[in-house]
Amino acid sequence: MKSVPEPEGGTQRGKPIGRRVVLGMAGIGALGVVFGAPVDGWVADVLQPLSSGSGSGIADLIPGSDYFQLYTVTSGFPEVPPDYHLVVDGLVDKPLSLTVADLEAMPPTKLVRDFQCVTGWRVPDVHWTGVQLGYLLDQAGVASEGKAIFFESFDGVYSESLTMDQARLPDVIIAYQMLGAPVTRPHGGPVRLYIPEMYGYKSIKWLSKISVTAVEGSGYWEQYGYDLNAWIGRSNGRDDTPIN
């Protein structure tokens, strides 16, 4: 009675296929965790021709495809303010308020560099055009007590920071072109930061304000525990290959 009777009327016990399926899935899953990374890379190579490269192609939905994931920390991709200006202020001699056209009129810097996300994906050979951050800082004239930069986004939430030394690296740019066209709204247009040697969360999107500060502030993700100095391969507990 209390002992469980043979299921299904006791005609036959049958094979424990349910348990085998469950344990089989768990086993394959565990193997996939340990050995799945090369498969993931292989799938990415196979799918490369199918991808739009901008995160909107069909192949971008297939696991393993190695292209931009579009992140936003607010609801949706923010609207560009109608009178958009990029402001440079803080500890500077001459605060700036620049339109996109103003930036385009400055000496351009063109880069073809990878974009590496701290969550693991990497987009190779992205084309970037923009103005060196160091050039902008020189235009505004950094006061002697200015030791760091704080960046703000017009999404109203996101922020980032760099030390003055990091900000003056020659390949740190205020980008107005990306993937061979003006930076699209999902990618942070009209203007975003790009710092190649650091993980993507440093390359703030929808950039609206660059403030020179005396001490380095803490940006959005840093408040959730991400490293302040986000060098690729040397931070956030990761050992990715530094980019080209």
């Binding site: 768990a26 899953g29 565990a30 996939g32 965790v33 340990v34 050995f35 799945g36 990374a37 498969v39 993931d40 799938v43 696991p63 393993g64 969550t119 693991g120 507990g237 990761r238 050992d239 990715d240």
Partner: peptide, 23 residues
């Protein structure tokens, strides 16, 4: 299993996070 590796990646090898995300 894979979600735990993705959410607490510091305890695992980097390639595990990639593998876990894939699975």
């Amino acid at each position: 299993m894979t979600g735990a590796v993705m959410h607490w990646p510091y305890y695992f090898a980097l390639s595990w996070r990639t593998g876990a995300t894939f699975i």
